[in-house]
Write a protein that binds this DNA or RNA. Structure first.
Length: 410
DNA sequence: CGACGGGACGC
DNA sequence: CGACGGGACGC
């Protein structure tokens, strides 16, 4: 019997009953080479925790691997850490493609959509009514980097309803909070607030492409006139509890270099500096960028949070609380000032114009698209019949950036 | 007598 | 492109 593999943790795991996803989000879904055997998976994934089951999916008749697998861990935090560290890795030196790792959809859900970090990083807790956001942060910061805390309050009296949210940067941090915080908090993963925007964000990229399809690159015309496009500010608004600052935290499932980070965030004028933070315990890309002013940072956050870089991989952008808490009024003012400031900054900055003209010119400098870039959502790639010259805006070696995406950013 | 269980975000 | 087997039974 395969005792070790299928029945560990004191008889807690019983194949047959639907303990496949107990506790929730403790199983990962892998896209691997067809030639990777189970033994390699066991070897590479056991460091993250107690493996309860490994299953390489095979064709029923030919028994050939379909290049996908499931690994069930005892705890969600183990599965999350395995995902964070192994996504994009090569399991063997002669593998041509890096693997993909996602939290598996629960078997009952029936969906095969990739589970996004958005759904795995926010927890919902019950707290004493006396708690402030700062109290909440103090209690939960031991489990990881908190993006923001919020408390549900009576809208008129302002009194707490004893319910709160904590958003972490990484899924494993939220999972650890749920697993390890005092039971009295009744911590669970929060349901994503807006289901609608979730599905629309899924097509964010392709929608943008459609809007601008057929346009010639307009390197000398910036669509600053249509400033009503700031509707995107509301979409990601965190209801006042996020800190506003010049500093932004950037996370990604795919690691990035300092040069890549710079290239992305230098799109928004006013970038002061950026740095990548090397986390030895995670393969996640993690970085910090700082702008000269709050307005640029706000603009960068709301334009680049959820931005796909490389295509198919969403980066997460959040403010780093530097203590200089901005009030709602300041936030609104800053938001309104952003446009005007940006306009002048762009026009006054020769390198920015040069940057655009360079991108809009010829296809002579097209680099190869790197094959080691993990693209979780391949369906979002440009259709092959589209002329490459019109589709790609090559500034970000090694990752090309579609021009329409750039247009939208500006 | 004596302390369980509940739970959702201003568009 | 890349999503679901195997094994077997108690209040």
């Amino acid at each position: 019997m395969d005792e070790a593999g299928s029945c560990a943790s004191g008889g807690g795991f019983r194949p047959g009953v639907d303990s496949l996803d107990e506790p929730p989000n403790s199983r990962i879904f892998l896209v691997i080479s067809k030639y990777t055997p189970e033994s390699v998976l066991r070897e590479r994934f056991s460091p993250f925790g107690e493996i309860q089951d490994i299953w390489v999916v095979r064709d029923k008749h030919t028994k050939e691997s379909k290049g996908i697998a499931f690994v069930k861990f005892a705890r969600s935090s183990q599965a999350c850490r395995a995902m964070e560290e192994m996504h994009g890795q090569c399991l063997s030196p002669n593998d041509t493609k890096p693997i993909k790792v996602f939290i598996a959809q629960s078997r009952s859900s029936g969906s095969h959509r990739d589970v996004e970090d958005e759904e795995l990083t926010r927890i919902f807790v019950m707290i004493p009514k006396s708690y402030t956001e700062e109290d909440l942060r103090e209690k939960f910061k031991v489990y990881g980097d908190i993006e923001y805390c919020s408390i549900i309050k009576n809208k008129v009296t302002g009194e707490s309803k004893g319910l709160g949210y904590v958003r972490y940067l990484k899924p494993s941090q939220a999972a650890q909070a749920i697993e390890n915080c005092d039971r009295s908090f009744r911590a669970i993963l929060a349901e994503p607030k807006n289901k609608a925007s979730e599905s629309s964000e899924q097509d964010y990229y392709s929608n943008m492409r459609q809007e601008t399809l057929g346009h010639e690159p307009r390197v000398n015309m910036f669509p600053f006139e249509q400033q009503s496009d700031f509707s995107s500010f509301d979409k990601n608004d965190n209801r006042g509890q996020e800190a506003i600052s010049k500093r932004l935290s950037v996370v990604s499932r795919v690691p990035f270099t300092e040069e890549q980070l710079f290239s992305i965030f230098d799109i928004v004028p006013g970038l002061e500096y950026c740095e990548v933070q090397r986390d030895p315990y995670s393969n996640y890309g993690h970085g910090v960028v700082q702008y000269f002013n709050v307005a640029s940072a706000i603009y960068a956050k709301y334009k680049l949070h959820g931005f796909q870089y490389p295509p198919g991989n969403r980066i997460g952008v959040s403010f780093i609380d530097d203590g200089s808490n901005a009030t709602d009024l300041l936030r609104k003012m800053a938001t309104q000032m952003v446009a005007a400031q940006l306009a002048s900054m762009v026009w006054n900055n020769p390198s920015q114009q040069q940057f655009l003209q360079f991108g809009g010119s010829s296809g002579s400098q097209l680099p190869q698209i790197q094959t080691d870039v993990v693209l979780p959502s391949c369906k979002k790639k440009a259709p092959p019949e589209t002329p490459v010259k019109e589709r790609l805006f090559i500034v970000f070696n090694p990752h090309p950036l579609p021009l329409d995406v750039l247009e939208d950013i500006f």
